[in-house]
């Protein structure tokens, strides 16, 4: 199999279970890319906020330069969810009678804990970040990938787009009837929201399947960690998204290709990874494969 050439990709997602070293390897990858002169943005979507600890720097909600050509920031997903649902509540308050508003607000609040909410908030952030910063940076590295399930949802755009399209049609038909009945039909917020979501799903579907996007799976040594890694890989690939790289982390010895994929081997670090210099042994592995 041809060795991977990292310079060919623009967007990087590292998948893997908690604790396998996603944040550490994402940071090392971003650092390696920036050292080769690529203007790189490192984004943490990890609710554990390990990035600021690892970099020993406070990170906020906007990119901050942490090394030459390297900027980083942490997304506070819970806050993003809160802000979004607060806005929905404010929209509701503007149009709903006081008698009804409490019931509707309760219904909106259910969304915080609805299945998949955190995952959808994650892809919303990915969408916004790639859209807002895609032009300003050569490479964007995400330290967490959306789960296989969410990737599948977004990467099978036909299903999802057909679904949104049928909602759009339903609404258009309803508005047409209202128009025919002589009602004045103005700019419809329902339609504009549905169209915005449609554009988001289309964009993410393309992004996930693009040949400029690299999905990598981080695995640790041991039979069970490898099995879990293989399952993650399958989940992503069954969603129609190719996994281009296996990152074998904390391996004392190099093996061959894992799961018939190009595999990079990373040694265990002598000390806990704190500060950029501690990542040097990992950065040098990535640098060899930038090409």
């Amino acid at each position: 199999m041809k060795p991977v050439s990292l310079r060919n990709y623009r967007i990087f997602f590292l998948s893997g279970k908690g604790g396998v070293g996603k944040s550490t390897l994402s940071t090392a990858l971003a650092l390696a890319l920036s050292k080769r002169g690529f203007k790189t943005l490192l984004v943490s979507l990890d609710p554990a906020h390990s990035l600021s600890i690892l970099l020993k720097k406070g990170l906020g909600g906007a990119p901050r330069e942490v090394a030459p050509s390297l900027s980083a920031f942490e997304v506070d997903l819970e806050r993003e969810m809160r802000d979004y649902l607060k806005k929905v509540e404010r929209d509701a308050e503007k149009i709903i009678s006081p008698a009804l508003i409490e019931k509707v607000k309760n219904q909106i609040e259910l969304a915080y804990n609805s299945p998949g909410a955190l995952e959808l908030a994650t892809v919303d952030s990915v969408y916004r970040i790639v859209k807002n910063y895609g032009r300003g940076f050569d490479k964007i590295v995400f330290d967490t990938a959306p789960s296989g399930y969410t990737v599948r949802l977004m990467a099978s755009p036909d299903k999802l787009l057909n679904w949104v399209d049928s909602l759009i049609e339903m609404r258009e038909e309803a508005l047409n009837y209202r128009k025919m009945a002589g009602e004045e039909v103005k700019e419809d917020p329902v339609l504009s929201i549905l169209r915005k979501r449609r554009e988001e799903y289309r964009f993410l579907g393309e992004l996930f399947r693009s040949d400029k996007t690299l999905f990598g799976v981080v695995v640790n040594p041991g039979e069970l960690p490898l099995k879990i890694g293989e399952r993650t890989l399958k989940e992503i690939e069954e969603a129609g998204v190719p996994v281009r790289l296996i990152l074998a982390n904390k391996f004392r010895e190099k093996g061959g290709e894992l799961f018939k994929k190009p595999t990079l081997y990373f040694p265990p670090l002598e000390k806990e990874p704190l500060g950029l210099t501690s990542l040097e042994p990992l950065v040098s592995v990535f640098e060899k494969y930038i090409g």
């Binding site: 969810m81 979004y84 649902l85 929905v88 929209d91 509701a92 503007k94 149009i95 709903i96 009804l100 509707v104 219904q107 909106i108 259910l110 969304a111 609805s114 299945p115 998949g116 909410a117 959808l120 908030a121 949802l153 419809d188 917020p189 329902v190 929201i193 549905l194 979501r197």
Partner: peptide, 14 residues
């Protein structure tokens, strides 16, 4: 599975 997204429509249909 998309409740978190579709809830945005609720104010206008409620």
């Amino acid at each position: 599975p998309l409740y978190y997204h579709t809830v945005e429509l609720l104010p206008y249909l409620s």
